[in-house]
Computed example of a mutant assay.
Amino acid sequence: MSETRKLSSYELVLDPKPAAHFGVGAVSKVGELAAAQGAKSALIITDPFLGASPICAEVRGSLEAAGLAVSVFDGVTPNPTTACVDAGSDAGAAAKCDILIALGGGSSMDTAKGVSLGAVNPERGVALDYSTEFKNSGIPIIAIPTTAGTGSEVNAFGVITDEITHKRFYVGHSSALAKAAILDPKLTVGLPAKATAATGMDALVHATESYISARPNPYSDGIALQVVEMVSQNIVTACTKGDDIEARSQMLLASHIAGVGFSHTGLGLVHGIGHALGGQFNIPHGVALCLVLEEVLKFNLPHRVSRFARLAFALGVGDTAKNDAQNADAAIARIAELVKQVGLKGKLSDFGITHENLSSLANDAVEDAVTNNNPVAPTREQVIAIMEKTL
């Protein structure tokens, strides 16, 4: 497949995204934004830690000051499951809420999308899959990310694990797209270094996979290159100096715009394998991606040499005196170096994965919808070979 396509040969729909309110202290706007939606009763969707935090208290105070009744569902788990979404859906129905506040990382965002639909429809579990024709539109969502990585606030679909099969599927509907997003860098300052690293590398992978995808376009290309530059320049500082508000600001905005970019290209095999690892072994998403990142990029390299070469310059390691092949190798080496610098270098065996597990993981990865956007369609055997190198 050619690395580039003639723009005149295809149609491109640049769909609308939620209005994003960026700035230190922007979280104070949540009550105003909820009231502007005509809401009277809000349900905050979050995890137990954030539910007991001053951040949640501040969100609640802003909503109540704007005249809304507020309740909290704090049952979100990492790698959210069908049980998590179903419990939230029941809570939303019981509260008779008319707006949801998704507060947290990608897990809270993804859970909220399922709850948006489940609270007003009878479907539960895998029946909340995006292919379902729902009778009622979802409850409006305002998204407030407290991590910088997923970009989940800009799309209408969430990744959920089926507790029965341990496979991941996509909940969502066009009506589950957030009505607004609040990007407040101060909310990410308290994030521990490992979580900062894992979510930050997720943003870098979003941009990288978007740029080398089977469906590139100039709009997403520009976003991807900018995100790669922002993340590569700021992730180490964000991890080692967590109170650096400038590094936190750069990472949060990079995460958000990466989400805008990849929504028009899709992702690829790194995410396909990452979803399988999360579903079967409950490995945190960003950590799972980093376990296979270098080997998947090497697998894709022959099909995207010139694009990897351009990534080298965004990563700060490009050299005009070198050819594309040399710069492409430098790009992958720099990404691998970043994984080590932020403490996420690891092996599949660190998580109890053995050779006997690879076949099932490969099946799930190849069947995952994101893998369809990889620059070359991998076979099950090729995916197994990639994972063998990371055992």
Rank of each mutant, 00 (worst) to 15 (best):
E153N: 02
L7Y: 13
K345F: 09
D243H: 13
G190E: 07
T196L: 04
S107R: 01
P302F: 10
S2K: 13
R5S: 13
V370S: 05
A34E: 08
T196M: 05
D350F: 03
A35N: 12
L311I: 14
I353S: 01
Q382L: 01
E123A: 13
H173R: 07
N327V: 10
F262R: 08
G38H: 09
D110K: 00
T240R: 15
M109D: 08
L358C: 02
A214S: 15
V126E: 08
G138S: 09
L269E: 00
R124F: 09
D15S: 13
A198I: 04
N121S: 10
C84Q: 04
V383A: 02
L297V: 02
A369P: 03
C239G: 10
F281K: 14
D184I: 05
E3W: 10
G266I: 10
S137Y: 03
L191E: 01
A288F: 14
F299V: 00
Q250M: 15
V227I: 11
D86T: 05
F22V: 11
A19V: 14
I141Q: 08
G114A: 09
V189L: 15
A39N: 13
G25N: 12
T390H: 03
G352W: 12
M109H: 14
L344V: 11
G158F: 02
L225P: 11
P78C: 05
I142F: 03
H206D: 06
S263H: 11
S8C: 08
E64K: 15
A214I: 09
V383G: 00
G343Y: 09
H271A: 08
H173Q: 13
L358F: 03
A195C: 07
R307V: 08
A309E: 11
I164K: 15
L128P: 01
L225C: 12
N372M: 14
I384P: 03
A69I: 03
A94R: 12
V296Q: 00
L358I: 02
A321L: 11
A42T: 11
L269H: 00
I144Y: 02
I384L: 03
A102N: 01
H166Q: 10
V120E: 06
G149L: 08
A198F: 04
I283S: 01
V171H: 10
E388A: 00
I160E: 00
A95V: 04
H271Q: 06
